[in-house]
Amino acid sequence: MNIFRLTGDLSHLAAIIILLLKIWKSRSCAGISGKSQILFALVFTTRYLDLFTSFISLYNTCMKLIYIGCAYATVYLIYAKFRATYDGNHDSFRVEFLVVPVGGLSVLINHDFSPLEILWTFSIYLESVAILPQLFMISKTGEAETITTHYLFCLGLYRALYLFNWIWRFYFEGFFDMIAIVAGVVQTVLYCDFFYLYVTKVLKGKKLSLPA
């Protein structure tokens, strides 16, 4: 555990909690892509099946349980409790265009052709693109609430910090996981455009709105 890994995890946790609190406090999930949230729930579910097979640390187990619990709570708020506020018309990204290729790729390129390992690989690939429905929704509506941009920033920062974590681990532990690294780079790159807007607009007190 190094500082990049820890701050990455905490950034991820912050993102998840920001989103939950935003929906809970405003009693609304307007502007939030339910599809991205379902994908994240699927990501955690398929990745953390090792909760049943191996124990790594109390920290690891607790964080996994919190991530999974929050992911399902978010999906529940969007599709059940505050369903009336869900903006389904703008959440029109076709998720099968992500899930099907990602499923195929995880069967083809993995560390080990076993069910758990393929599901882990699937979750890594899927996570790298799971935010696309959310970014698509923002590009469609042309704007995002400031709190939503904080959520996205923390979520993007998390994977960027993981990249530094992997550099650290490569130098000091000789450890690297090519699947995680390549997917992590892809994931981080997808946020670059958003990072630029966040720094140039949101941090200067302006609302994030895209030119028409």
């Binding site: 890994r5 995890d9 991820h12 990745r47 090792d50 097979t53 191996s54 790594i56 640390s57 690891n60 964080m63 996994k64 991530y67 560390h111 080990d112 076993s114 758990l116 390992e117 882990w120 993981y162 974590n165 996981d177 995680a180």
Partner: peptide, 10 residues
């Protein structure tokens, strides 16, 4: 068969 891979990251 090989030892199952352990993914210690989140």
């Amino acid at each position: 068969s090989q030892e199952p891979l352990r993914h210690d990251e989140l």
